[in-house]
Structures are given as C-alpha cells and as structure tokens.
Design a binder for these strands. Structure first.
Lengths: 213, 213
DNA sequence: CAACATACGTATCGAACGATACAAATGTAG
DNA sequence: CTACATTTGTATCGTTCGATACGTATGTTG
C-alpha cells in the first residue's frame, strides 16, 4: 500500500526546509505559528500544521536535525583524519564562511545564532542540539590541533586549548558578521589571516617568516 | 520644588538596570512585560510600568543606551590615540572578555548577542543602536590597525580590512563562548594567542619569532 | 486647610499566541 | 459499492501578549 487516506496538499519535506529558514532567520520564540503556516506550501491551516508536525516545538526539533544533517556538515572535515590538520581546520572555516554567505537561505550559522534563539530558561531544552553542536565543533577544532602536535606539525609547547578557543571564537563570530553584511570576500581574507596563528606554532620555519628585504 | 505628586515606590534607575539584565539575558522579544514588571522593584503594576517607561520598546531603548554608556565602554580604548595601537586593541579584547565573564549580570556582550534579540524585520529598528555599536567597534579595530601602519608599527603591506575582521569576529564570538560556559581564563589565553597575528605583521622582529633551540 | 500633581491598585481591553473539536472532503483497500 | 484512513476547512478554545480606563492613595504647593 502506497499511502492510506487523503493525501496532503503540501510537500512535508519542503515545508521543513521553509520552516527551517524561518527559525534560522528569527529564532525559535520570535517565529510564530502564523508565520510558519503562511510559509508552508503557500499557506496551510492550523489543523494541517498540527497533524503534520505535532507542535511548534516538535517542528523546530525536526528543523534543527535537518540543519545539523545538511548545512552544519561543513565543519565535519574537522574529524577527517585523512586530511592534514591544518587543511582540515582551514577547510572547515572556509566552507562555513561560504555556506553562511550563500544566497537562498538566511545569513550566518543557525548553530551559532541559536544561543539567543530560545533564551528563556524553560526553553533551553529546545536548543540543546545546537548547544551540543557548538561543543562538538569546539572539540573538533581542539582535536585537529592536538593531532597536529602529535604528528609533529605544531610545536610541542603549543597550547591546544588556547589556540582552539581562538579559532572557535573566530568561527562563531562570523555568524554575526554575516548578519551585519560582511561579505564572503572579507571573510575569506580574514580566514587567511587567522591561519597565520597556526603557522606561528608550526614546526615548518618557511611558513612563519616571509622573506624580508 | 523637589518633586510634585506622589513619589514612586521603586527606584527608576535601579529598575532600568534590572530590566537591562533581562533584555541582556533573553533579548527584546523573548522578554515579556510580566517578567519586567516582576523584576522591577520586587514587582510593580502595569500602569506603574507604563507611567514610568512609556512602553516596552521605550524601556528597551533606555536599556540599550544605558548598556552602551556603561558596559560597552570597555572597547572605547580603541579610540584612545594616547595608547599604542597594539595595546589599545589588546586592552579592548581583555576588558571585554573580563566584563563578559563578570558575575552580577548576564554572560556575554549585549551588543554582540543583540543580533538575534529582535529578529523580525519590523523590529529591526529597535536594535539599531546595537547594530551601530558593532559597526563602530569594527571601525575602531580597523582604525587601530591603520594607525599602527601609519606609525610604522605594522608593515605597510598589512591588509587592515582582513586583519580587523579577524579581531572583530573573534571579539564577537566571545559572547557565545561566554554563554556556553567558557571561562575568563580560557578567553585570556586565547587573546594572548590571537594577538600573535598582530605580531606576525609587526615591524619588530623580536616579537615574531621566539628563540629556537 | 484647599488645590494640585503624580503614582498606585483593580479590572480590563483587543489582538495574537499556541493548540483543538468537529464534520466534510478525498484518497486507498476490500 | 462499502469500509476505512487521513487531510482539509471552519470555528473556536484558553492563555498570554502589550497596553489602558478609572478611581483611590499620597505627596507637594499655595
């Protein structure tokens, strides 16, 4: 049997993407049912909404799961040990910046902007997947650095915690910059600059000091 | 004449500070009148609220003005030309980190977290002072770098735009880190690290390369 | 004292919020 | 066709939202 009962008139999968864009843009609390209903399939009724998604909170959780499974994958290369640590980190930064500036969806990263998405204490549970994702990215950056130290790419006296905090804070800050209109070109230039910190701790001398006249 | 009519039973100045803390913690839209009324002077009535502040939006504007005039002053040293550019920037970062981690008020910077405080397009006007403050800090960082180039502290081929974006993104990212529980110690260590980028472009050789065995 | 100015408490406004009851409509399965 | 499963549309629920009307209480001014 293909599907029993009357078929729905909107694409549930596309609806999640549209709802995701709203939550991404405005956060959980600031996005109303009216906005969600209006954005889905050119407008649906309240009963259709609840039949399809259960509740606003349940839909949000589906949206965050969708985000983490798609857009947020730009930083997964942090865990790819087939890549050299420096390239893994630089790739994560560049991919994230590119994604955050893409057209067709809100600017910035939903994970980063999610800190203020549901700020009430009783609603903190709803954004927990985002909080966990930030912690995971933090750990990924640190793991990259520790791997580089182990492999001899970074000097053994490098402080992995301090260094990873630099890259992590820089990465999360990009979301706000994107919202403020800073473009991809500027971000990419900044990424090239910030990777200079890596080279400062590199064991390869040629990276640390450009030739001087 | 000192004051006509019946005096109010709460301290209006303290009320603004308490409301500021709520807006700082939760943002504009997520903070309700009920919360504000309950937080002010141990609980006030709705008419007292409106008589004293006019509206929720007017109070928010007073709170942002208060924030910008007090807490946000930590970055004013960016404009202090009596300081060496590097020290001005490092001081701004350190002061901001310290302020964001202070006890007695919400973690993070209200200016940075304000991006998602009133995300609806029609409410963007209410957070405009915060957006302007971010732009001003961005300009301050860039001005510091340009001044360093002019004064010969940074090499003339330094890209002020790219470099300022690094520090700006790092600074804004600290707010989210603070919310996630990253402590002042870790931030200070990261600040020391990120200032290494400055030294990479410094004209003073002794800063760029620590002695090697 | 009387006159005035201001803040207070109670009670309530209309609108929007998230969420449902219920019956008609539309599909599949036998 | 009948029986069943699911969605749809209309109308509405109770709550909370931001915001007020109105009469009373409490202060200063003359």
């Amino acid at each position: 049997m293909a599907q029993m009962g009357r078929p729905r008139t909107f694409d549930r999968d596309a609806a999640i993407e549209q709802a995701l864009h709203l939550f991404w843009e405005q956060g959980y609390e600031s996005t109303s049912l009216s906005q969600l209903k209006a954005a889905i399939g050119g407008g649906i009724s309240a009963p259709s909404f609840y039949a399809a998604f259960g509740s606003k909170q349940a839909l949000y959780q589906e949206c965050t799961a969708r985000y983490l499974a798609t857009y947020a994958q730009v930083t997964e290369c942090l865990w790819d040990t087939a890549l050299a640590p420096r390239e893994a980190l630089a790739l994560a930064l560049r991919r994230s910046a590119r994604m955050q500036c893409e057209r067709g969806h809100p600017k910035g990263c939903m994970v980063g902007l999610g800190v203020m998405s549901a700020p009430s204490p009783e609603l903190a549970a709803v954004t927990k997947p985002l909080t966990r994702s930030r912690a995971r990215t933090r750990a990924g950056i640190k793991a990259c650095i520790e791997r580089a130290i182990t492999e001899g790419e970074l000097k053994s006296d490098t402080d992995p915690s301090a260094l990873s905090t630099v890259f992590d804070s820089f990465l999360i800050g990009l979301s706000t910059l994107a919202r403020d209109g800073v473009g991809l070109r500027a971000m990419e230039a900044a990424i090239s600059q910030v990777m200079g910190i890596w080279d400062l701790h590199s064991t390869r001398q040629d990276l640390e000091q450009p030739p001087r006249t």
